[in-house]
């Protein structure tokens, strides 16, 4: 399998331990036909434990989701067995269709087809607010 080496693909490293499965879902990796590996609780010198996702195909990633979930994540793009790019996802300014607004008085609770959109209002404290009602995003309040 691909646990050892990826020839052409993506390695998402330094995922906080226990959150790999969550990312797997948000990145829609279940829809891929290629080999995908989730390694849980791998040894990390910096953080003790980490999760890793390996995808044996170069895919377009939603870096906003990665940056929102954990800015310490690194994304390695592998081509012909060589790492050609290392990306540190940034905290996104807006994030669409990922965080759920839990305010029952918010228009997103009733308006058909309206996406939940949050904006970064305080970078230092990583605070996101619903663009419609200004409700603060609670940790883990994913759609």
């Amino acid at each position: 399998m691909i646990i050892g080496s990826i020839v052409n693909g993506v390695v998402i490293d330094h995922i906080p331990a226990g959150r790999g499965m969550e990312l797997y879902r948000y990145l829609n990796l279940e829809e891929l036909q290629c080999e995908v590996a989730l390694i849980k609780n791998a040894f990390s010198e910096k953080h003790g434990k980490k999760d890793i996702l390996k995808v044996n195909e170069v895919i377009d990633l939603n870096f906003d989701i990665l940056g929102y979930i954990a800015p310490q994540i690194t994304v390695n793009i592998i081509k012909d067995g060589v790492r050609v790019q290392k990306i540190h996802p940034q905290l996104p300014n807006t994030i669409t269709g990922v965080i759920k607004c839990k305010n029952p008085r918010c228009i997103v609770s009733t308006e058909q087809g309206l996406k939940h959109v949050f904006k970064l209002t305080d970078r230092e404290n990583r605070i996101y607010r619903c663009i419609y009602c200004d409700t603060k995003a609670e940790p883990q309040s994913f759609l």
Binding site: N103, R105, C106, I107, V108, S109, T110, E111, L114, C130, I131, Y132, C133, D134
Partner: peptide
């Protein structure tokens, strides 16, 4: 004017 928050933005 709307009872739901954010309706005018929509």
């Amino acid at each position: 004017r709307h009872p739901k928050e954010g309706a005018p933005l929509v």
